[in-house]
């Protein structure tokens, strides 16, 4: 029978389950969240394991900060079998310990590197491409549809950047919202938070000025559509103030 292990979608739960499987020498066919629909030949197993929060610190001291962060980034990715990749990575890391990230010849390591870099790069891009609107009462509001689940990472950036503002960032793909109140941010489901979308009085004028700047700053003798698209892929344009009209 093909055993599919089910976890609740939380990163720490996943790490605990992986550790449990490895300790007990159990080989999963896959590990999935509880929304997974198994096929006829698959056997789903729910494990009731104590959620040990300390596992994060344990991993950092055993495999290093870099390995830990890479694992978390893989967890945030849209990769289909990310849980299984993390399982194999964990398995090998127990042998190689701190040196694990050097083993590019192991498939699980190169996969973890590839996927975590993808998530890191998208986060970096979003730090630039996210566009806020000013709503009434001075609230800044932005929407995005990133490929990976980067709302948490993006929010961490804006906690420092826009420290003294109220802001709200919405991930339209996952229907989750991050809300910041000048002290800390929380991530909630879309339906748990209602916000009047009315723009502030000056908003249209500022957007207009920004579009003027954007159009002016390009040198027409150097026009290079391919280069622009490489750096700023069309999938992000929908929410970028200065280019969404070009879509």
């Amino acid at each position: 029978m093909n055993n599919i292990y089910i976890y609740d979608g939380d990163f720490i739960s996943l790490l605990n389950i992986i550790l449990y499987l490895l300790k007990n020498n159990l080989h999963p066919e896959n590990i999935k969240t509880d929304v997974y629909h198994p096929s006829l030949f698959e056997n789903t197993i729910y494990l009731s394991i104590l959620k040990n929060e300390k596992i994060i610190d344990q991993i950092i001291s055993a495999f290093g900060q870099y390995a830990m962060r890479s694992m978390y980034y893989v967890f945030l990715s849209k990769e289909e079998n990310k849980e299984l990749i993390l399982y194999y990575f964990f398995q090998n890391a127990l042998k190689r310990r701190h040196k694990i990230m050097y083993y590019h010849n192991l498939k699980c390591v190169s996969e973890v590197l590839r996927i975590s870099n993808y998530v890191r790069h998208e986060t970096h891009k979003m730090k630039g491409f996210l566009r806020f609107k000013e709503l009434e009462k001075n609230i800044l509001y932005a929407e995005m549809e990133p490929t990976n689940n980067i709302l948490f990472l993006v929010s961490c950036h804006f906690v420092n950047r826009l420290k003294n503002e109220f802001w709200v960032i919405k991930d339209n793909k996952r229907k989750i919202i991050s809300i910041y109140d000048k002290k800390q941010f929380v991530i909630v489901k879309e339906e748990e938070f209602k916000l009047s979308q009315k723009e502030s009085k000056g908003e249209q004028n500022i957007e207009f000025l920004w579009r003027i700047f954007y159009k002016t700053i390009g040198i027409k003798e150097r026009r290079n559509e391919r280069c622009r698209m490489n750096f700023m892929p069309k999938k992000y344009w929908k929410y970028i103030t200065e280019v969404k009209e070009e879509l």
Binding site: G218, N224, F231, M232
Partner: peptide
Amino acid sequence: ICHSFASDGRCI
């Protein structure tokens, strides 16, 4: 951080 890219492909 690059925030945008102009029509000539240069970063803004």
